[in-house]
Simulated scan of single mutants.
Amino acid sequence: MLILGIESSCDETGVALVEAAPQGVPRLRGAALHSQVAMHRDYGGVVPELASRDHIRRVLPLTEAAMAQAGVALHAIDAVAYTRGPGLAGALLVGAGVACALAAALGVPAVGVHHLEGHLLSPFLSADPPAFPFVALLVSGGHTQLMRVDGVGRYHLLGETIDDAAGEAFDKSAKVLGLGYPGGPALSRLAEQGDPAAFALPRPLLHSGDLDFSFAGLKTAVLTQARKLGPALEARKADLAAATEAAIVDVLVHKARAALKATGLNRLVVAGGVGANRRLRAQLGEAATRHGWRLHYPEVALCTDNGAMIALAAAMRWQVGAWSAADRAWAFDVLPRWPLEAVALAPDAVAE
């Protein structure tokens, strides 16, 4: 089974080819990705209309590039997968429209995939793929969630953010510090030069007794501290960046540890763009060594939005017999807001 995956939920256009057998871990055959960061930088954030137009320009050339890399002809494709949601409506429609038109022309299924399911399963393409069951920490620009994952389509929400996600806290704090777009990576780079103990920033919900997150208060605390510093902020930016990053990472590590303890599991998967953060990886690595966990990440190139994770999720659903008749109808819709629990499979629909 050779599946073409198309990702267009926000500001990256990704296309990839994944090959899957009825059993075993699918493998990546070819991939191409374009980031719109440079285009959106002048606006300080993603402009949805510009994002949609750029996806239109990029998706077909990227498809040709991924297929050339894989050495695969168009007629060899057995299915086309696309991001159905969540994401920007216009951007999603570009990928969905191209995918369903291509699938109809080839007479193959078109499979709508949940963006977060793609992130959650992406470590299966890594050199050290996980095994079920595990706890997943999904951390990206718009999502921070802890999930118990017992198999493909077998997801149980343990906790999530009640306001800003971790990625939003990075980006909004970076904006306060005048670091431009994209803020999260810029803040992390600056933090390497600072003292994480320089400012006493809050760790929201650290001892709440549940597995939920909250980062809006931290963003406000960073803004308050920046205003207190006034003209001295320029000289203390690195310290404030380091303190901000430390606060976010401390909460993520603490909650991940609590989730593993609550579930009795010892395997943690970390996925999403924030999963590439060096401090987060270092602290989780130390905790894994101390407590005897197994820790899994996607390859760094697969932490960001990409077509490989979309093709992979479709492939793994195919392996458990979870494609529906609708996948062959080529009619489509998109779901800008779509909870991950909505794609969970009924127990009798999942192959053991």
Rank of each mutant, 00 (worst) to 15 (best):
E245W: 13
A246P: 05
A246F: 09
A246E: 15
A247S: 14
A247W: 02
I248A: 04
I248W: 05
I248T: 06
V249M: 13
V249Y: 08
V249K: 10
V249F: 06
D250F: 05
D250K: 06
V251F: 05
L252F: 13
H254C: 11
H254D: 13
H254G: 13
K255M: 15
K255Y: 10
A256S: 10
A258K: 09
A258D: 11
A259G: 10
L260P: 13
L260A: 07
L260Q: 05
L260F: 11
L260S: 13
K261N: 08
K261P: 06
K261M: 14
K261S: 08
K261V: 12
A262N: 13
T263K: 04
T263A: 02
G264K: 10
L265Q: 15
N266L: 14
N266P: 02
R267Q: 11
L268R: 09
V269Q: 02
V270P: 06
V270N: 07
V270A: 03
G272M: 08
G272P: 10
V274A: 11
V274T: 14
V274G: 09
G275V: 03
G275F: 03
G275H: 04
G275K: 03
N277D: 13
R278P: 07
R279F: 10
R279H: 11
L280W: 08
L280S: 14
L280F: 09
L280G: 12
R281D: 10
R281L: 08
R281K: 14
A282G: 11
L284K: 03
G285M: 05
G285Y: 06
E286R: 04
E286T: 14
E286W: 13
A288Q: 04
A288T: 08
T289S: 12
R290A: 12
G292F: 14
G292A: 10
W293F: 06
W293E: 14
W293K: 05
W293A: 04
R294N: 07
L295T: 09
L295G: 04
L295E: 09
Y297Q: 15
Y297L: 10
P298H: 03
P298L: 06
P298W: 03
E299C: 00
E299S: 02
V300Q: 01
V300P: 00
C303W: 00
C303R: 00
T304Y: 06
T304W: 12
D305P: 02
N306P: 02
G307F: 01
G307T: 01
A308K: 01
A308T: 00
M309H: 01
I310D: 03
I310Y: 04
A311D: 04
A311K: 05
A311W: 03
L312E: 00
L312R: 02
A314G: 03
A314D: 01
A314E: 00
A314S: 03
A314C: 04
A314M: 02
A315G: 03
A315I: 00
